[in-house]
Nucleic acid binder design. Structure first.
Length: 313
DNA sequence: AACAGGATCAACCGCCCCTGT
DNA sequence: AACAGGGGCGGTTGATCCTGT
């Protein structure tokens, strides 16, 4: 792809930003918004490439950036989120408002990674260095992987929502112009302020300890009462199991996934999952390990929900 | 005081994805 | 369907600061 010719490249300034450049960029964005980053430098009178301007703005000049030391709460959130998401810094940053992905990445690479290593934990896998198969740690790692699958699904849903909201904005604009004339378009639906369909983790938390089976996971927890309840909930909210009831755990798992899919799609109320779970746990026989996992995820969810004001929760 | 090595962090680079044509 | 351009992301670099000797 042709980006720019060499001559143009030679004129662009690189390296640290000066106060004067910062002021120019700030003043321009405050007055006009950033618009097209590519076109911005010329308009703002900067000898920088658009990319450099964008980076400077998003990582440093933006007014809603919190700088300075990370709190222990934030540290824990980063560690847990990294266990879930890996090096997906932008996804991690969405759970830590006012922190940039670059800042989080730097903090991880320069401090947290080393700290975990010193503690004998592999920062890549979040597992203890010596890790006998079948141990609680390896099972927890599998749970982490499982959660990562869900987080991936959630992020995809978020991306879809962004696309839809863009479309919605266009529709609203069209409708706005159309109201002056005979109505050509129906009024657009009201935009949801809080997309409940994105709250997979919240649904997870609401269930407060459902079994962590999945069609792709090798985990096999006994006493799985959630799947059936969730499947019922899923059926009520849109998903209808092919054969009515479940013949095996795989079917239950599928239903669980479809239920969560319905939550993701917004066709199912996460609280319904919750109540069904609570109602059915009396017959369960959770293991100690399961309690550990439950506590682990509760702790994580508490970390990423309340104190750091995640926009998702 | 001078130096070396480590730590930190802003900024860059290259790649990829999405969107518009 | 193919292509170009814009924007975003993660990895890496290099300048600067800090600390220990």
């Amino acid at each position: 792809m042709v980006r720019s010719n060499g001559h143009e490249k030679m004129e662009l300034k690189k390296g640290p930003w000066t106060r004067d450049e910062d002021q120019k960029l700030l003043a321009y964005i405050e007055e006009h918004g950033h618009g097209s980053w590519r076109a911005l430098p010329a308009k703002a009178g900067l000898q920088r490439c658009g990319k450099s301007c964008r980076l400077r703005w998003t990582n440093y000049l933006r007014p809603d950036i919190k700088r300075g030391k990370f709190s222990s709460q934030e540290e824990k959130a980063i560690i847990r989120l990294h266990a879930l998401l890996g090096n997906r810094w932008s996804a991690i940053a969405t759970h830590l408002p006012k922190r940039t992905d670059n800042e989080i990445k730097n903090y991880w690479n320069t401090r947290l990674k080393k700290r975990l290593t010193r503690m004998g934990i592999d920062p890549a896998t979040h597992k203890p260095k010596e890790n006998p198969a079948g141990s609680a740690q390896s099972r927890q790692a599998a749970v982490v992987s499982h959660m990562a699958q869900w987080e991936t699904a959630r992020l995809e849903a978020e991306a879809r929502l962004v696309r839809e909201s863009r479309l919605l904005s266009k529709l609203q604009l069209l409708h706005k112009t159309a109201v002056q004339q005979p109505p050509l378009l129906p009024p657009p639906p009201a935009a949801a302020t809080t997309p409940a369909c994105l709250d997979v983790l919240k649904a997870w938390q609401a269930c407060n300890g459902f079994a962590l089976d999945s069609p792709t996971s090798t985990l096999n927890f006994s006493g799985n009462s959630f799947a059936g309840a969730a499947a019922d909930a899923g059926k009520v909210n849109g998903y209808v199991p092919e054969k009515g009831r479940f013949e095996d755990s795989a079917q239950e798992n599928s239903c669980f996934y479809y239920s969560m899919h319905n939550v993701l799609e917004g066709s199912m109320d996460p609280t319904l999952l919750s109540s069904d779970c609570y109602n059915s746990t009396s017959t369960s026989s959770y293991t100690g390990e399961f309690e550990d996992n439950k506590n682990y995820w509760n702790e994580l969810l508490n970390l990423v929900s309340s104190p750091v004001e995640s926009p998702v929760f």
